[in-house]
């Protein structure tokens, strides 16, 4: 198979970028989309050009590192599939394929298709956890948790933090990401003590990082490689409303400090 790849090239966060076209020949339908980029990069290197930078690591759909908008859709045309699990048999020979990075103010481009997603980490640092020190846990079976609640928590916890929800959202909102974290712990007894504070802190952190707000387009759900539903966002809203009306104090979270390079 042969393809024309239209790829976003950008040297670094300061320089402007542009779409550049490349021909790739000798592609087999068993290759993954990232392997086509590998092949293209190998050709570029041999020609003495710098390869296209793109994030990838596990290549089995779980680390959340790959982040490509392929033909206008984050993670490409296959539903519930990360870009690394996308295979070329899903494309037609000779097709032109556009490849762009996630686009959001909170995800500045580092180079080519690589963006800085530490904003998502900082959101979690604001309270996306259960505060429990090592060694202070009671026996694992001390608190029974209904299977239903455990399954719901799992469904929310399946988030791989790739940021496709942000990339797809017309508002570049991280609501689905935040909601999944809030809902995971809200479903479990271990998450209850910090439940309302967590909802507030995560939402405030999301705003601080420059993500947009949710206006219920549900594009996030459509591209989420783990199929996380928007009903979790409703859950987040519910917890937030409850927190706004009923919590007695709102603890301040110290602003995130970036480690020096």
């Amino acid at each position: 198979m042969k393809f024309t790849l239209c790829v976003w090239r950008q040297l670094n966060s300061d320089e402007p970028g542009s779409m550049v076209s490349y021909e790739v020949d000798g592609v087999s339908e068993d290759m993954s989309f990232l392997e086509v980029l590998d092949l293209l990069n190998e050709n570029l290197v041999v020609r003495g050009e710098e390869p296209i930078a793109f994030d990838h690591d596990c290549r089995e759909g779980i680390c959340g590192m790959c982040a490509l908008v392929i033909n206008g859709v984050p993670h490409g045309p296959e539903p519930v599939t990360t870009a690394c699990q996308l295979h070329m048999r899903k494309f037609t020979d000779g097709q032109t394929i556009t490849v762009e990075p996630w686009r959001a103010a909170a995800f500045p481009v580092i180079r080519d298709l690589v963006v800085d997603r530490r904003s998502l980490d900082r959101v979690i640092q604001a309270g996306g956890f259960v505060s429990v020190n090592t060694g202070s846990a009671p026996d694992a079976n001390a608190l029974p948790i209904s299977k239903d609640a455990a399954d719901r928590a799992f469904e929310a916890a399946a988030c791989i933090g790739c940021g496709a929800c942000v990339a797809a959202c017309p508002n570049a909102s991280a609501s689905l990401f935040v909601a999944a974290k809030v809902a995971q712990f809200a479903a479990l007894p271990q998450g209850q003590p910090e439940r309302l504070q967590r909802a507030i802190h995560l939402v405030e952190a999301m705003d601080r990082e420059g993500f947009g707000g949710c206006t219920n387009h549900y594009e996030c759900e459509a591209v989420c490689p783990k199929g996380i539903p928007v009903s979790f966002i409703a859950h987040l809203n519910r917890d937030f409303l409850k927190a706004a009306l009923m919590s007695r104090e709102v603890r301040d979270v110290p602003p995130a400090v970036e480690a020096e390079e």
Partner: peptide
């Protein structure tokens, strides 16, 4: 430790 952190391990119907 992991259960206390909210790791959603598989459970049976008795919880």
């Amino acid at each position: 430790q992991c259960v206390a952190q909210g790791v959603p391990f598989a459970r049976d119907y008795g919880g």
